[in-house]
Design a binder for these strands. Structure first.
Length: 466
DNA sequence: TGTCCAATAT
DNA sequence: AATATTGGAC
């Protein structure tokens, strides 16, 4: 199940077991989708292994076993390729000749691999990244990031799994990150850990050593606000008509995806069923089988502890957690994602709202709503389809229809970071100016940065996840 | 094609 | 436990 380590070393190469590893889609990163890598590798077995490894992450692969083939492919269809991965010592061409040629033909990022001997030379000649054999999965996991930097100068970076961090840290520091130190300290442990780990882990297989938080997008948290909307939608649609798509529409929450609803719905139905069963048993036991019916069409969910529970403290905590933990760590390659922002809102929310009484919570919401950074203003982003890339918090659209339903002002969607800003559907009287003045420059900076980043990073239509 | 949903993965 | 993802049925 687990994607096995793939290796180039001689021992490993002979072990066919690597080739029999089952690759499931769960292993694949959606970020890698649509990215085609030209793999140039003289050893067929290596080629096979690497291809498989790449594909496991969702990359598309084009292969070549000779330098000449590679050049040919590059010549013919460079536009279909997003990245070149190339063995440094190909039999049919001098190593520096080939990188020189490739570099001259194309500006695609080059990832080289082999032993340490050629590393400096290749980096100097323009390789974006140098991987040491044996290559492990983490080496390859985030290659997609390189493809988003076409327009930038190629940063020299090197070696092994940590290479992403190593090479790119500088850039980060210089640009965006600088303004927002506090945040990074929360999220960006990886930079500091780097050196320590390097010493200890050296060559040991780094299992799932995910410093690369990068790929993980925070889970949606079904806050009570969200859940209430969900319930309300079901109430309106009726139990039978309540399908994910419609529920989604009725909930009218920006950034919420159908999958989110589906998943929640599944859980919801389970809970319904559980309760139904329970009641049935009770009835049977009590010899009142006829009463069983009521539950089906009714709103029995309200009696279910899981789904009824109106308010809990957890919501606030979750929101906050999502914020602080969310991948500011994107630092690996892009500058942009370091922008996670901290708002006075959240600080404010954090402390007081933890009371056990529900009413208190209600009161805290209005606060958030106007302190909140709320919306992303650029409508452009909607065009990104499902993958918005905002670091800007999103808030619930205030459903005009349901505003009476226990909703007290806008709520922030838990996993704001990579959520798309859907066009706002309802009147949104935002005191934007107020917001901006409340929030220090950081936010403004962040917004600007966001724009920059949008161009650099998000322009790519293949961008799948953010 | 897209939606839905049960099963399964994380 | 909660949420996300997958793959098959429609």
């Amino acid at each position: 199940m687990e994607l096995a380590r793939c290796a180039f070393s001689e021992e490993d190469m002979t072990s066919e077991q690597f080739l029999s590893v089952e690759v499931t889609k769960n292993n694949a990163s959606s970020l890698a989708k649509g990215i085609r890598i030209l793999v140039v590798e003289s050893d067929p077995t290596c080629l096979r292994i690497v291809s498989k490894m790449l594909q496991a992450f969702g990359y598309e692969v084009t292969t070549a076993t000779r330098a000449t083939d590679a050049l040919h492919i590059l010549w013919e269809k460079e536009d279909e390729i997003n990245l070149i991965m190339i063995e440094t010592h190909l039999p049919d061409m001098d190593q520096y000749e080939i990188i020189g040629t490739v570099r001259a033909m194309s500006s695609l990022p080059i990832v080289a691999d082999n032993n340490v001997s050629a590393m400096l030379g290749w980096l100097y000649k323009g390789a974006a990244l140098y991987l040491m054999k044996p290559i492990v999965k983490n080496d390859v996991k985030n290659l997609w990031q390189l493809t988003y930097r076409k327009k930038k100068k190629i940063t020299v970076s090197s070696v092994r799994s940590n290479s992403f961090h190593a090479g790119l840290a500088e850039e980060n520091a210089s640009s965006v990150t600088a303004g927002i130190p506090s945040l990074l300290s929360t999220t960006g442990q990886s930079d500091q850990m780097g050196k320590r780990k390097e010493l200890e882990e050296t060559d040991i297989d780094d299992e799932d050593n995910d410093n690369l938080t990068v790929l993980k997008k925070p889970e949606l948290v079904w806050t009570n606000e969200l859940h209430n909307r969900f319930l309300q939608a079901i109430r309106i649609l009726g139990v039978d008509g309540a399908h994910p798509k419609k529920i989604l529409q009725h909930m009218n929450v920006s950034g919420l995806k159908k999958e989110n609803v589906s998943s929640h719905l599944q859980k919801y139905r389970l809970s319904l069923k559980r309760e139904q069963d329970a009641t049935q048993k009770t009835m049977i036991r009590d010899h009142h089988p006829s009463l069983t019916l009521n539950l089906q069409g009714g709103f029995s969910q309200f009696t279910n502890p899981q789904f009824f529970m109106a308010i809990s403290q957890s919501e606030h905590t979750n929101n906050i957690q999502n914020y602080l933990c969310s991948p500011a760590s994107m630092h690996s390659l892009g500058s942009a994602h370091s922008l996670t922002r901290v708002n006075t809102n959240y600080d404010g929310m954090l402390i007081p709202s933890y009371g056990q009484q529900s009413k208190q919570l209600d009161r805290t919401y209005p606060n958030c709503s106007h302190t909140g950074i709320g919306t992303t203003n650029d409508g452009n982003f909607a065009s990104l389809g499902q993958k918005g890339n905002h670091n800007v918090e999103e808030h619930l659209n205030q459903g005009t229809t349901f505003s009476n339903v226990g909703t007290h002002g806008p709520t922030f969607l838990g996993s704001s970071q990579q959520q798309l800003q859907f066009p706002l559907l309802q009147p949104q009287p935002l005191p934007e100016k107020e917001d901006e003045s409340d929030i220090p420059n950081i936010v403004t900076e962040a917004r600007n940065e966001l724009l920059v980043m949008k161009n650099e990073f998000l322009d790519d239509p293949n961008n799948d996840l953010w």
